[in-house]
C-alpha cells in the first residue's frame, strides 16, 4: 500500500510560565493511503496535540512530519461543527474555497456534487440553526471534503451528538469517507466507535503520548459500522482495547 504520511520521532513540549508539559515523546508511525486510523488513549495524553501537529497548526519541538504527496491539504473536523450561523449551508460548505483562489468552476461543481450526493441539496439556502445536529455534522464534513484534502483529521467529531444520531452519523461519515477514498485519523474516547469505523486502532500511552499498541481490525470490507457492531469479532476487539487502556 502507498505510504502517505510519516511521523519520525516526534516530540512536543508545551511551555507555560508555571510548568513544562511534555505532551508527546518519541512518537513515530506511518499512515498509508486510505487508511482509517482511530486513536484512543487516556484523557489529556496528547491526542489533540497530535492532530494539530499533523495539521501544521503547531510545529514539533523535534522530529519530522513528512507528507509523501504533493497535496498536503488537511481537513480538520472538531467536536463542534463550527458552522458559521450567519452563512447559509451553501456558503458554509464553500467557505474554504474562498481562500487561495480555490473558487474555480471545477471546485464549485465538486462541492455541489457532494451536497447533492449526501442529501443536503434541499437545504443549501437554509441556515445552520434550522438543521439537526446530525445534519450539521454532515455539512461540516462536506465543507471539509470540498477542499479535497488528502487526509481528514477528526477530533471526537461525534461526541456532542446524542446516541442515536451518533450511530447514524457514524454510518454516514464512514460511507462518505470510503466512497471518496479518503485517508482519515479519528480521535475518540468511544472504543466501540473506534472498532466500527476504522481499519487500525492506535492505542496511546499516558502523557507523554507514545504508541502503546496498534490493533489491525480485520472485518469484512463490505460491512457498515452498523453491521460491524453485530459482528462476532466486535466483542473480542473491544475487550482487547479495554484491557490495554486500563
Amino acid at each position: 500500500m502507498e505510504n502517505l504520511l510519516t511521523l519520525k520521532n516526534i516530540q512536543l513540549t508545551y511551555h507555560s510560565p508555571k510548568s513544562e508539559t511534555k505532551a508527546i515523546e518519541n512518537l513515530s508511525f506511518d499512515i498509508n493511503k486510505e487508511d482509517f486510523i482511530s486513536i484512543v488513549g487516556p484523557s489529556g495524553c496528547g491526542k489533540t496535540t497530535l492532530l494539530s501537529l499533523i495539521a501544521g497548526l503547531i510545529k514539533p519541538t523535534s522530529g519530522e512530519i513528512v507528507f509523501h504527496s504533493n497535496n498536503s491539504q488537511v481537513g480538520y473536523m472538531f467536536q463542534r461543527d463550527n458552522l458559521f450561523e450567519w452563512l447559509n449551508i451553501w456558503k458554509n460548505v464553500s467557505l474554504g474555497l474562498t481562500f487561495h483562489k480555490r473558487k474555480t468552476e471545477e471546485n464549485i461543481a465538486y462541492a455541489k456534487e457532494l451536497i447533492e450526493k449526501y442529501g443536503l441539496k434541499d437545504f443549501v439556502s437554509h441556515f445552520p440553526s434550522e438543521l439537526s445536529g446530525g445534519m450539521r455534522q454532515r455539512v461540516a464534513l462536506i465543507r471539509t471534503l470540498s477542499l479535497r484534502p488528502e487526509i481528514l483529521l477528526l477530533d471526537e467529531p461525534f461526541s456532542a451528538l446524542d446516541y442515536q444520531t451518533r450511530l447514524s452519523v457514524q454510518n454516514d461519515v464512514f460511507s462518505i469517507i470510503k466512497h471518496e477514498k479518503k485517508t482519515a485519523i479519528l480521535v475518540t474516547h468511544d472504543i466501540g466507535e473506534a472498532i466500527v469505523m476504522s481499519s487500525k486502532v492506535f492505542i496511546l500511552s499516558k502523557r507523554p503520548a507514545m504508541v502503546k499498541k496498534i490493533i489491525n481490525l480485520d472485518f469484512d470490507q463490505s460491512l457498515t459500522p452498523f453491521q460491524r457492531r453485530k459482528d462476532e469479532k466486535y466483542q473480542p476487539y473491544f475487550d482487547e482495547i479495554w484491557e490495554e487502556l486500563q
Binding site: 494539530s52 495539521a55 501544521g56 497548526l57 480538520y76 472538531f78 463550527n82 467557505l95 474554504g96 474562498t98
Partner: peptide, 23 residues
C-alpha cells in the same frame, strides 16, 4: 476553534478577520 478551522483551510489573518471575527 473557528479561527483554527479557518487556519487549516489556509486563510490568512485578513481573511480570518473579515470572514469570521467581523461578522
Amino acid at each position: 476553534e473557528k479561527i483554527l478551522l479557518l487556519k487549516t483551510m489556509g486563510a490568512n489573518k485578513l481573511q480570518i478577520f473579515f470572514r469570521l471575527i467581523f461578522p
